[in-house]
Nucleic acid binder design. Structure first.
Ligand SMILES: [Mn+2]
Ligand SMILES: [Mn+2]
Ligand SMILES: [Zn+2]
Ligand SMILES: [Zn+2]
Lengths: 144, 144
DNA sequence: TTGCAAATGCAAATTATTTGCAATAATATA
DNA sequence: TATATTATTGCAAATAATTTGCATTTGCAA
């Protein structure tokens, strides 16, 4: 964790720079996979700055509203948050260890056009996730 | 609502035929879009047979386990249930009126193979939903 | 520096879903 | 058909994630 001040950045979004928000931005910058509000809260506790869990929820809500973060929810599980991706991408999720791999490249452009013609819908976005087993988990499963 | 007895069908799955289960099967058969447990419960109450909400949850849980129903959860919202589709299909959802259109034909087979090669994952399924505006809602939005 | 709106902490509320347990109902079989 | 054996149900209470009310604190613009 280096930089702990995102004042300009936050002000640009009309948000005050608080130690809690700076801290969360820093945490979000350093995580490689999406985290739940509670996971982020637990990381925050480890730092010297204290944050309350409701504050974490409130901050993530505001960040999501401003598209600073992306809020995702898998099948049944809790919502997870990550910095909003700069490019359009999709996720490949391991059903056993929950590892997430981001995949660039979207296979849906043509399909969307076809569907638009067939249905008269105007499609504005989509959600695509692939589920499977990562190499490690494939081995573990095979060994049982 | 015609037939109210699915005894053979339920027994085949190792489940007893109860008036609650028969009723739910009938409701599920007649709905055109996925419903929440509570929506199904409310429809059930309208019939003469009484059902408890926890029972509805328990029945839907068991149905889902047996793949009689499909349990889906959109972004933040509650889980919804529908009869398990006989063919692989995806949903096109209107962001304004929440209408759901089912679309047959999956554009992902080739893409999955490519991703498997790139990532060493073994892909077992995927989730694809398209979001947009239905024709009616497009008009309404344009008129504002 | 001060004033005020925005942000926070804390506890309590909400909401969807699940669970324990005693009562009831469905099936198998005597 | 009567009975025994389980599975299923109803009801109330528990859980778990998220949200909210309110008093206090903080950031920042004037
Ligand atoms: Mn895409
Ligand atoms: Mn598909
Ligand atoms: Zn894995
Ligand atoms: Zn619509």
């Amino acid at each position: 964790m280096e930089e702990l001040n995102y004042k300009e950045y936050l002000n640009k979004y009309g948000m005050k720079s608080t130690k809690q928000r700076n801290l969360l931005l820093n945490i979000l910058k350093n995580i490689k996979i999406p985290h739940t509000a509670e996971q982020i809260y637990l990381k925050a506790r480890k730092s010297d700055a204290l944050v309350n869990l409701s504050t974490v929820y409130r901050i993530l809500e505001k960040f999501t509203e401003k598209k600073i973060t992306l809020r995702t929810s898998f099948m049944d599980e809790k919502c997870v948050y990550s910095l909003f991706p700069t490019t359009h991408q999709h996720q490949l999720i391991c059903l056993r260890c929950k590892k997430v791999i981001l995949i660039g490249g979207c296979p849906l452009k043509e399909f969307e056009k076809t569907v638009e013609k067939q249905t008269d819908f105007s499609i504005v976005n989509h959600r695509l996730e692939l589920y499977g087993y990562c190499r490690d988990c494939q081995k573990i499963i095979a060994a049982n």
